[in-house]
Design a protein around this nucleic acid. Structure first.
Length: 878
RNA sequence: GGGCGAUUAGCUCAUUUGGCUAGAGCGCCGCAUUGACGUUGCGGAGGUGACAGGUUCGAAUCCUGUAUCGCCCACCA
């Protein structure tokens, strides 16, 4: 079959993926005996679309999956999607708003029904996109965070933690998003700098400053540092009366070290209901707390005439009123502080005290390796004791730092979309309440006087279910339906869990190290007694060409994989994402990069085209091609080095380096030297072997073009490249390899001379020896020499072991004298340097022997070269 | 305030535990060319490795300090 001149990715990719998928090679086989490699795909948002960040992750994971598969391992790469509670909930709320209605009008059931419908549609989109990237994942095991088995895992976790006292319900201050009307976790809050007026008011005998006068209605404590001499005459517990916004208030003096005497006046009033620090101060001194702002962001009746007003609207009016009363001391218009914003959804966070569910990270009840630890301590231990490796290592520090600062995790959310909290309440006429925590709803036993059980309306933080992802996805879904079995029994009977957990690698972006990776470690060690994965590989952010974050709001910065793939091919995109990157470091993406890698795919294609035309008699099984020429030995040696190098790089997660080695070899060694040599003296089995090896090595990186070539060549019948073995190596002879390197030196020098002198081709003569007898034809071809001639003058090669003269007229030769002189200077400098190094006794004594030997060899070589240059230069002495 | 990272060729980035003349891609200069590939080939120019010290026979690499940029965490009355 004749290959077309250029590789058109879009003509092949879809079919190739279908071929793979139909063949079943992506499927894991727990029933067979083999080494395992397992990996969970970080589940993308079910309603999302694929962006370049996903593409990078998928590309890396696919490289790992394909490489390990080709090494004969049984590979499980489990795909899936996430219900992304907050984000998805927000989508539906927005939709409803556009329709002029809201969630309360449509009701919980309908709300969820509509979301399920929406998800079902977009999951298909997401699946198609992951396939388009070439992901060799096991679709038969696809999971979704709201699957029944996963939901059971969530409930099991909740119930177990509750039983151990790790989950508790409490009135605590939380980050409240008035826009989405839900709490959000600490690390889902981002800080945005904002300039806002900073007011100083008179408050009784004190001056207090604030940027938020609207929260100050209920303030009745003034706090200062116990050591602040300015306020020494006021004692802790002193009371006074102050004229305030809506009349006089009675206030109490509190001394607390949380106050910074340097900041503002060193005195502040506190609003414990709406400020984290104030809340803590109030807790310490058992002070009253009062809600000022409601959950929609409006002022409560305590604000009197301002009640019912949104805070933004009320603020200037309150200031005006205080000013009218003569209580406004000053305004700093240049005050900059940061305000808290919900990472997903843009709502400005208003801290509130709310009855919420929390995970206690400090309670020591978790058995781990014979000790009883807290969740925090387990998280630290597994990384410290190398049960989990983090690549790159420096993220360990970030990880520890984060854990040190970790507070109890608020897991309840006031949204409808997600895993509902498995807690039921009922009350009786006397106002007593009962709480039931369990996997399934409690039966209404009709107990005298009690109302029916009602489930907690809240849902769980998305990350609570994502935290279970590595193992909840490996549970046998059928077993999970059987509630007569305990989770332990289910796990021990689930073949996938027994076979593939802990997973080998977790590949994800460093930006969700805390959100997700840390929480997987937390929940998985607790629930299964195993780490979720042995290695975490963190990739960097893919940025726009100018180094900016790509964002939908700036479409010109976006590179959309779905546009790039049909145009340049998936391989080009994947290679561009991989090349020139290193773990944990951000990278920049550009169309130019993608074009460059498209060209590489095409290079492979054309190499195959040449070899297809040259290899007229392909053999079926190619174990031992017989090398004949120095070039054959050289290419085999190189192939061996590359195979070993790429394997090592992939074993150590050095994807970019492995790929670069391969790229260099394919383009600069194989195409430019071996193929060119083959035009003179082709060795069909070696060509075939080399191409086979190259396709195998390149397959994890560029699966489509390599498989396409493999299929088009049809050397292995209907066999798939994706299912083939990682290449074995055939050793080339070292002496012959060196001989080819000498050929290269000669060719390079001739090319250099001819190019410098602007002589396109030249006649030549050479010393009569075995080397030239054997290799002169190849040299002529590669160097573009015209033919053999007898002549007297001409130019002699100076940097090679064998003597060869070029027939170039004296006048032109003189132009070369300058170049030779430059070379002479270079050689002399390098000799001087090497000699001084060898004269250094410390160097000779202390450096390793092979380094010293190397230096000596270099010196000899440089001296020889200098002699030749000098000899040649004597001709120009006049 | 605490921490992490970056600074290498015009640009984007590599350089695995300190050791060949610090590499690659793109760009640049010159040349070539109908037969694997113009998505090409050949040759070339281009780097005080941010700066200042130190350790070492030897430093881009280790240590100390400085500068600039980016990020994370905490605080922000």
């Amino acid at each position: 079959m004749k290959l077309p001149k250029a590789y058109e990715a879009k003509d092949y990719e879809k079919n190739i993926y279908d071929l793979w998928e139909r063949s079943g090679i992506f499927k894991a086989h727990p029933e067979i005996k083999a080494e395992r490699f397992s990996m969970s795909m970080p589940p993308p948002n079910a309603t999302g679309t694929l962006h370049v960040g996903h593409s990078l992750g998928i590309a890396i994971q696919d490289i790992l999956a394909r490489y390990n598969r080709m090494q004969g391992k049984d590979v499980l790469w489990l795909p899936g999607t996430d219900h992304a509670a907050l984000a998805t909930n927000a989508i539906m709320e927005k939709k409803l708003a556009e329709e002029g209605t809201n969630k309360h009008e449509v009701g919980r059931e309908e709300f969820i029904r509509r979301l399920k419908e929406l998800i079902a549609n977009s999951q298909d989109t997401m699946r198609a996109q992951i396939r388009a990237l070439g992901a060799s994942c096991d679709w038969s095991r696809e999971r979704y965070t709201l699957d029944e088995a996963l939901n059971r895992s969530v409930n099991e976790t909740f119930v177990k933690m509750y039983g151990d006292g790790l989950i508790y319900r409490g009135h605590r201050i939380v980050n409240w998003d008035p826009l989405l009307e839900t709490t959000v976790a600490d690390d889902e809050v981002v800080r945005v700098e904002e300039k806002s007026p900073f007011y100083t008011f008179q408050y009784g005998p004190f001056q207090i400053s604030t940027a938020r006068p609207e929260t100050k209605f209920g303030d009745k404590y003034v706090v200062m540092h116990p050591d602040d001499k300015r306020y020494a005459k006021y004692k802790h517990g002193d009371t006074f009366t102050a004229e305030w916004i809506n009349g006089p208030v009675s206030a109490t003096v509190i001394k607390d070290k949380a106050v910074d005497p340097e900041f503002g006046t060193g005195v502040m009033t506190i609003t414990p209901w709406h400020d984290m620090t104030d809340f803590e101060i109030a807790q310490r001194h058992k002070l009253d707390k009062e809600q000022i702002i409601d959950f929609h962001g409006k002022l409560l009746p305590i604000a009197d005439e301002f009640a019912g007003q949104p805070i933004q609207e009320a603020r200037p009016k309150i200031v005006a009123k205080l000013k009218a009363k003569g209580l406004l001391v000053s305004i700093d218009e240049n005050y900059v502080h940061s305000i808290a914003v919900n990472d997903r959804g843009q709502g400005i966070i208003e801290p509130q005290i709310k009855l919420q569910w929390f995970v206690d990270v400090n309670k020591q009840v978790v058995p781990w390796k014979g000790k009883i630890l807290s969740l925090k301590e387990v998280m630290q231990t597994v990384v410290r004791e190398q049960d989990i490796a983090i690549v790159p290592e420096r993220f360990k520090k970030t990880y520890y730092h984060w854990i040190d600062n970790l507070r109890d995790w608020c897991i309840s959310r006031q949204i409808w979309w997600g895993h509902r909290i498995p807690v039921w309440y009922r009350s009786n006429a006397e106002g007593e309440e009962q709480v039931y925590v369990g996997l399934q709803p409690p039966k209404n036993d009709g107990s005298e006087g009690w109302h029916e059980w009602e489930q907690d309306p809240d849902t769980l933080d998305t990350w609570f279910s994502s935290a279970l992802w590595t193992w909840s996805t490996l549970i046998d879904p059928k077993l999970a339906q059987d509630y007569s079995l305990s989770l332990e029994e289910i796990l021990s009977r689930s073949l996938d869990f027994q076979t593939y957990h802990p997973t080998s690698v977790m590949e994800t972006g460093w930006d969700i190290l805390f959100f997700w990776v840390a929480r997987m470690i937390l929940a998985t060690t607790y629930m299964t007694g195993q780490v979720p994965f042995k290695t975490v590989y963190l990739h960097g952010l893919v940025r726009a060409e100018d180094g900016q974050k790509m964002s939908k709001s700036k479409p010109e910065t976006m590179i959309d994989p779905l546009e790039v793939i049909p145009k340049y091919g998936t391989d080009a995109l994947r290679l561009a994402l991989i090349s020139g990157t290193s773990p944990g470091n951000d990278s920049r993406m550009s169309i130019a990069k993608i074009v460059g890698q498209r060209n590489f795919a095409n290079k492979l294609w054309n190499i195959a085209r040449f070899i297809e035309a040259t290899v007229t008699e392909p053999t079926k099984s190619l174990e031992q091609p017989v090398p004949k020429t120095p070039a054959d030995h050289w290419v085999l040696t190189k192939l061996q080095q590359i195979t070993e190098g790429v394997s090592q790089d992939l074993d150590n997660f050095r994807f970019a380096e492995g790929y670069e080695k391969l790229y260099q070899f394919v383009w600069n060694d194989f195409a430019d030297w071996y193929i060119e040599t083959s035009k003179a003296e082709p060795n069909q089995p070696v060509l075939q072997f080399a191409l086979t090896t190259i396709l195998k090595l390149a397959h994890p990186f560029a699966p489509f073009v390599t498989e396409t070539i493999w299929q088009e060549l049809g050397w292995e019948g209907k066999g798939l490249l994706a299912a083939s073995d990682w290449p074995h190596v055939v050793k080339g002879d070292i002496k012959q390899t060196k001989e080819f390197e000498e050929i290269q030196n000669i060719v390079r020098e001739i090319r250099y001379i001819l190019s410098s002198l602007q002589v396109p081709r030249a006649m030549f003569k050479y010393e009569q020896n075995a080397f030239f007898h054997k290799n002169i034809a190849v040299i002529m071809r590669l160097a573009g020499l015209k033919g053999i001639a007898e002549f007297h003058h001409g130019l002699k090669l100076v940097e090679t072991r064998h003597q060869l003269w070029l027939d170039i007229d004296e006048l032109t030769v003189h132009n070369f004298a300058k170049q030779l002189t430059a070379k002479k200077t270079e050689a002399q400098a390098s000799i001087k340097q090497l000699e001084s190094r060898l004269k250094n006794k410390n160097y000779v004594a202390q450096a390793p022997a092979h380094i010293v030997d190397q230096t000596k060899a270099q010196l000899t070589e440089a001296k020889t070269s200098l002699e030749k240059i000098k000899a040649e230069l004597t001709r120009f002495a006049d």
